[in-house]
Design a protein around this nucleic acid. Structure first.
Lengths: 109, 109
DNA sequence: CAAATGGTTTGACATCCATCAAACAATCCA
DNA sequence: TGGATTGTTTGATGGATGTCAAACCATTTG
């Protein structure tokens, strides 16, 4: 297996089971909103706090926030070796809440 | 004074000072999301829990939620006599976060 | 004035939550 | 194999939060 997109998908809610109130609750935190805006640029991200802009936080705290976002259905996580690759579930979010992600990104302050 | 739109405006953040993360935090609660959806239908609402669909909550709890929403900049409240008239700050929210309210309403589950 | 009305404030309480630290687990590398 | 890398998990802790109840306040009404 030499593919660059290997790895096991961590448990996450099905697209149809993503709940708006849980998404809003997850994004109603400054750290997670920051992560969301980084992820929204597209592509996959490991947990390095420099790239994510959360250098001031302990790694366990970052891990906690990523778990919250994954369980809310905002992100999907692929475990490949030691690394976790996280990305926004853009298509699922757009299908379930049309225009929401776009509006949140347009709202950058 | 016989006008139907009398009353003193309760303190609220200026339109430009409405923060996305605070709006999302406020809406990330099932009760407040419910209130938001009621308000979004348009018009003014007093605090009667029947019209708001929160009959199961104590009046002080409803009052608390309305304060949170007002301080987040989601609603504005006008005090006329004994009654508080609450409405969505639709224009301010649309100006600050274009498409957000529409997307949240379209997402009704 | 007294009572009713509509809502706020304060206090109490239980729960949730963000954070850190330390231990743990899995993987990669020398 | 042993150490380094990349996170996760668990426990502790302080602070925020949702809820109710009771007291309070302003307004209206009898």
């Amino acid at each position: 297996m030499t593919a660059t997109t290997e790895g096991e998908l961590l448990p996450q809610p099905a697209a149809a089971e993503i709940e708006l109130v849980k998404v809003l609750h997850a994004l109603g935190d400054p750290v997670r909103l920051q992560l969301f805006q980084v992820y929204a640029a597209g592509g996959e991200y490991d947990c390095s706090s420099e790239r994510l802009g959360v250098m001031h936080l302990h790694k366990s705290t970052v891990s906690h926030h990523m778990k919250v976002m994954r369980e809310a259905g905002i992100t999907s996580t692929r475990a490949a070796g030691r690394v976790r690759y996280v990305q926004l579930r853009r298509a699922d979010l757009d299908a379930r809440f049309p225009g929401l992600v776009a509006a949140l990104l347009a709202a950058r302050e």
